[in-house]
Write a protein that binds this DNA or RNA. Sequence first.
DNA 1: AAAGTATGTGACCACTCACTCACTTAAGGT
DNA 2: ACCTTAAGTGAGTGAGTGGTCACATACTTT
Lengths: 198, 198
Amino acid sequence: MRKSAELRKAEIVVTVLDLADRIGPDRVTTGAAAAAVGVSQAAVFRHFPTKAAMWLAVADHMTEELTSAWQRALAGAGDPVGRLEALVAAQLGEIAAKPALPMLLFSRELNVGNDDLRAAFRRLLMTFQGLIVAEIARGQEARCLRRDVDPADAAVLAISLVQGMAIRWSLGARDFALVEEGLRLLRVQLRLLAAKGD
Amino acid sequence: MRKSAELRKAEIVVTVLDLADRIGPDRVTTGAAAAAVGVSQAAVFRHFPTKAAMWLAVADHMTEELTSAWQRALAGAGDPVGRLEALVAAQLGEIAAKPALPMLLFSRELNVGNDDLRAAFRRLLMTFQGLIVAEIARGQEARCLRRDVDPADAAVLAISLVQGMAIRWSLGARDFALVEEGLRLLRVQLRLLAAKGD
DNA sequence: AAAGTATGTGACCACTCACTCACTTAAGGT
DNA sequence: ACCTTAAGTGAGTGAGTGGTCACATACTTT
C-alpha cells in the first residue's frame, strides 16, 4: 500500500511518539520507527533528511496538539481561576495521553546536538508559562487571588507542580490518576493563593 | 600510573558523573569513560563486571553524597522551617554541583533494563520526601505552619518546586542561580503556608 | 631473586546505529 | 494503454557499542 508523502510523514510522526512512550525516546531508532510503520528503514530517509529532522517534525506535531488543548481549556471556563485549573488539567491530560512528553525533555535526542529541537520545546513551555501568568494576574485583578505574590512567582509554583507531578508519575509505576491527583494538589495550592477575605 | 582497584573504582565513578553532565548520561560509553580516566576501555571491565554495575556504583556514590548533605542541613538549623529551607538548599546545591542528577532520572540507562538502578534512585527520592514531610509536620505542631494542609501535600508542593526549578535550569542555559532562585521561591511558598496569626 | 598476584592492554567479537544508493514498482495524469 | 514520477526497497557503508581474551607489566611476598 503506497501512501502520499504527506500521509506517510504524519504516520511516521505519530508512530515515533507512540514508540517513544513504549520503549523510551532514545531507543527510537530509524529502524524501529520504520518497522512500527511497516516500511523499510531506508524509506524513513525518503521523508526526512536526517533523524533530527524527524524529531523536529514530532515537536511541531506536539506544538499543535498542546496549543489547541490550551485554547480549548481557555475557552471552556469563565473565570481566571477556572481557566487556570482548566489549563493545568489540559496539560496533565496531554502528558497522561502522551507520556513521552516529559521523557523527551531529558532525552539525549533533545539535549545533545539538536539545538533546534531544544529551542522548540523551550518555546512550548514558555508559551504555557505565559498563559498561566496571564490568568494569575487576571485573578489578582479580580480580587480572587491574594495580591502580595508576584504572578510570575505564583506561575512558577503552579508549573512546578505540573512538572513535579509528571516526574512522580513517570518515575513511579504511573500508579495514580495523574490528572485527578494533580488537580487536587493544584486546588490545595490555589487555596493558599486565595484572597484572604473569602 | 597504576592505582589500587579501590582508588580506580572511585575515580571511574566520579568521572562518569562528570561525563554524564557534560555529554549526557546516555552518551557515557565504557570507552568514553575509560578515555576520560586515562585508561583502556577493557580496564573498566576489570573493575565492574558490566556497565550496569558501573552505574550502580555511581548511584551508591550519590546516595552517600546526598545523605550526608541532608544530615548537614538538618543539623545546621534549629527550627523546622529553617531545616526545611536548609534541606531544599542542600538539594538544589547538590543538583547545581552535579547537574547530571536530574538528567539521570530520565536516562535510558536508568529507565530501561536496569531495575536496580531505578530502585536505588526511587529510594533516594522517597527518603528526601520523608525528611520534608517530617519537618512540615513538626512545623505544624509548633504552630509555625498552618494546619489545614496535609503535610504530605505540602511536601509534594515543596519537592515539586525543587524539581520544577531543576527542569527550568537544565532546559534553559543554566542562566540563573539555582540555589538562590529556588530558595526565594521556597520562601514565597512558605509564606503562603505560614500560620495565619503571625 | 623467584614466585605469585593484581592492574592494565590491544586486538577482536557480534551487534546496532544513522545514512546512502542503484534499482524497482505502483499511482495518476494524459 | 502509456509514460512520468515519486514512494519504496535490498544491500550495503563506516562508525560505534558492550564485552572477551590472551598477554604484558608492575607491585608483594616469600
